[in-house]
Design a protein around this nucleic acid. Structure first.
Lengths: 236, 236
DNA sequence: CGATCCCTCGCTATTTTGGGGGAGGGTTAA
DNA sequence: TTAACCCTCCCCCAAAATAGCGAGGGATCG
């Protein structure tokens, strides 16, 4: 387990994306893997990765927006547990084509990916890739799964830290009533029913909505609710 | 590290909530902690926990809906890293009252919590609690933080497995246009400006909003955006 | 080849929200 | 004792969103 301790030490030194990338490359070498990938995905198509794949493949992946069809990404997105690539559904046409291209780009036949989730819907995955037979791979993944979980956690922690956390700006705190209001709005209730629930007049309710909007600098109610959610001010 | 392996074995036997609860109790004993808590806060406001707190405290916690003001829950909700309770903000009146009650209920002065997130916005936290001085606690948490991360992961995996995923079944995935739409709505844009941004007519845009609402079972646009956010379908 | 979904656009009401004003009384901290 | 919040309530009117209909063309999959 020394490797993990060393890793944390080395990782704590990294403060830039370049150092992060170098770290991932070193980690690949230490574990004697074909490839190691940290891949952060967000739903709007933005993505950031530190990886050891061929640049050509990476470029094509981004250009073709393969994250949308990549069975590994899609599979991880719906699971909590790490995923063995072999267990994924490679039957669709798109998947097959994707697999073919990936093989050509030098990816091994074995793969294992760990989903990681952070606040505000942040999502990333750490994948390891190898060329070997099923038996050897099963042995590797069962022995190293705990390591991989921890590595994934530390990598994501570092990535979030380097990217800077999005909760920038002095978000003024909301009053209890404002929280109640936004929370109920987030459940889809309209002003009339919320007023009834909170046993106040709709006029009063409007004051809360408006003051919450003002405090958050939100353009409208939906915006205010979205901001409150992503800033963790309310939990629905 | 044998303890962790044993733990996984023992946990794999558990198939019911009662066994899960017993497992948590045993784990508390093994690590010689005052308390150990697995607390799942689901997005509809419901919560499920396996813990070693006094039943009276648990009842009060649920009855008063303390999850909404509990600084540990609130803090974990917006962090990726585990949290040391001492670093939280205990200055507000509600926090202080909460802390007072918690102490009376037998909670120790030291605490450490690990946030865990699963698919569809699932959120849980694992907390450990102890009565001891700062130095001893710092030593414990630094030595055991990796253990705790893994424990949290395995506990959540098991909890998800036991609970099954019936409530998250009908969440159909959103089409790209629907995601675009909800994402822009979450930024506070109105329909006119979104239509302009996406270079489509407002009529078309309305179809997306309505189909997204329908798919998510949302009562209105704000609800749909909130659901998409908490389920991790969009990221702002 | 039909079912199903996605993308695109239109119409007329009706309902809901938002903007901009007020007002009074309570608590808390400088 | 002020100032700065917080909670509560009211008015009018304009703007925006929603409900409930419709239409056609394209891709995909069984």
């Amino acid at each position: 387990m020394n490797r993990l301790v060393d890793m944390q030490d080395a990782l704590s030194q990294a403060t830039t994306l370049e150092e992060f990338q170098t770290f991932v490359e070193n980690l690949r070498a230490v574990y004697d893997l074909e490839h190691l990938v940290y891949h952060s995905v967000n739903s709007t198509g933005g993505q950031y990765a530190a990886l050891t794949y061929e640049p050509v493949w990476v470029e094509r992946y981004i250009e073709q927006d393969y994250a949308r069809i990549d069975p590994v990404v899609q599979g991880c997105y719906r699971q909590f547990q790490p995923i063995e690539w072999k267990t994924l559904d490679w039957s669709t046409k798109a998947s097959r084509a994707f697999l073919g291209e990936a093989s050509e780009a030098g990816l091994g036949n074995q793969g294992f990916s760990v989903p990681i989730r952070g606040p505000s819907g942040q999502f990333a995955l750490v994948s390891v890739n190898q060329k070997c037979n099923d038996e050897m791979w099963a042995s590797f993944t069962s022995e190293r799964s705990a390591d991989l979980l921890l590595i994934s956690h530390y990598l994501n922690e570092k990535a979030l830290q380097i990217e800077g956390n999005p909760n920038r700006g002095p978000t003024r705190s909301l009053s209890p009533r404002e929280k109640d209001t936004l929370t109920l709005l987030a459940t889809g209730a309209n002003r009339a029913s919320i007023a009834e629930t909170l046993k106040i007049s709709e006029s009063t309710l409007r004051v809360y909505i408006e003051s919450a909007r003002f405090k958050l600098g939100a353009a409208n109610t939906t915006h205010a609710v979205a901001m409150a959610l992503t800033h963790g001010l309310i939990v629905v």
